[in-house]
Amino acid sequence: MQLQLPGIGEWMAAFFTLCIFSFLYRDNVLYRLAESIFAGVSFGYYIGLARLNTLEPNLFRPLFSDFAGHWPLLIPFALGLILYLRYVPKAAWISNWALAIYIGYYIGVNLIQRLHGEVLPQAKGTMLSLQVPPGQLLGNLVIILGVLTVLIYFFFSSPQRGPLKPAARIGVYYLMISFGASFGYTVMGRISLLIGRLTFVIHEWARPLVRAVFGG
């Protein structure tokens, strides 16, 4: 049986992984090299991706194949080009037109999206019935109490005195539990990344390398 060394891709990925891990010992030139190459490659990748996946199929190909049917595409194309007039000092103000349309569109989309898709359904989700079986009642009470007390904590228009003070205090406990859960999940997520890299280094680079060199 012929044993193969890891390929050039595996060698590069393992090298850059170890370069990034070297930061755990201390900041060094290999870490900075890997970081800079990653930033450059990411930017280059994004440009190529936008050209191949968006500009060519959605703009250039329709324009060249059927100009009469697709000429309105020239309008967003022109608006996109106008954005680059920011680099021409005397004409930089024209780029604001494209920017204004872009911002206007996304404000409109976001406003409806957040209100209709998030604020209203989430508010509705907290309006829970108390006429439910005991097991579900406890859960509903916890949610209702949490929403009210956290809202009281974030109500800054009046001093938190009298009955508002203990309610705000309970709100703080809710927030602390929420932050704790988020932090626990964050730790788990970061360890998952470590597992992913170590699994790659061990199974796809080190193990084949050891087998190819020492056999077995």
Binding site: G117, P121, Q122, K124, G125, I143, S178, A181, S182, Y185, T186, M188, G189, R190, S192
Partner: peptide, 17 residues
């Protein structure tokens, strides 16, 4: 979703979104 983002999605699930 990633673990980092997971907590906020449970609220969407509770609201049946």
């Amino acid at each position: 979703t990633t673990a980092v983002s997971a907590p906020k999605y449970y609220a969407f699930m509770e609201a049946k979104q």
